[in-house]
């Protein structure tokens, strides 16, 4: 039991737990989707002065901000109290591909310091890439009306064709980035 808590969870545990979350929210009359919070935060910050897109009743979306805060809290609990701090067991050929771009093996981290570390953040080239990436995430998630959680998990579960198109788009984008752009940028 103890090993189960501290070891990484296999897909057949996590997938059904994600479904459980979708149904807890559906039971409360809510749709699972995290990036809607971008719009809510912009509306709270006074975005309605600049665009009609932010003129909506954001108070009705407070539950989603609470959910997002819970996600961060859960991540903190998991990283500090439920983890054995062992390295990710990546496919060896993935590690070879990473090394060919000058990236180190994970070493217990979830994000490569080469892109997300403090040093990279303050070097102008990596800093600009992060800024541009953040812009694309914010723009794309709103333009498509959702991100991976809303379209891939909720939307596909509801057999929505627009979500299927969005997920195909995410996937093509990810393939292009991983195979074409990432080796050029780094």
């Amino acid at each position: 039991m103890q090993e189960f808590i501290y070891d990484p969870w296999p897909w057949y545990i996590s997938g059904p737990l994600l479904t459980l979350v979708v149904f807890i929210l559906l039971y409360s009359g809510k749709n699972f989707g995290l990036s809607g919070n971008f719009r809510t935060m912009c509306a709270i910050a006074g975005g309605s002065k600049f665009s009609n897109f932010f003129q909506f009743d954001w108070r009705a979306q407070k539950w989603n901000l609470v959910l997002l805060f819970g996600v961060m809290l859960g991540g903190f609990i998991s990283a500090n109290y439920l983890s054995n701090g062992e390295d990710l067991l990546l496919n060896p050929s993935t590690i070879v591909a990473l090394e060919s771009m000058g990236f180190h093996a994970p070493n217990g981290a979830y994000l490569p310091l080469e892109i997300f570390g403090t040093e990279a953040l303050f070097s102008s080239w990596s800093g600009l890439i992060l800024l541009f990436g953040g812009f694309l995430v914010g723009f794309g998630a709103r333009y498509a009306g959702g991100c991976t959680s809303g379209h891939a998990i909720s939307g596909l579960s509801e057999l929505q064709i627009p979500s299927l198109i969005a997920v195909a788009g995410f996937f093509i984008g990810g393939l292009l980035m991983s195979h074409l752009f990432l080796p050029i940028i780094f």
Binding site: W9, I24, L67, V71, G74, G75, S78, L82, T94, H179
Partner: peptide, 30 residues
């Protein structure tokens, strides 16, 4: 919603869904 979020955060983290490396590995079909 807070408790559901905590569950979700633990699932995201414990199953390494939020790992950049896992996502990269996925796009390499490995």
């Amino acid at each position: 919603f807070l408790l559901t979020g905590v569950l979700l955060g633990i699932v995201f983290s414990k199953s390494e869904i939020i790992s950049w490396y896992r996502i990269y590995e996925m796009f390499r079909f490995e």
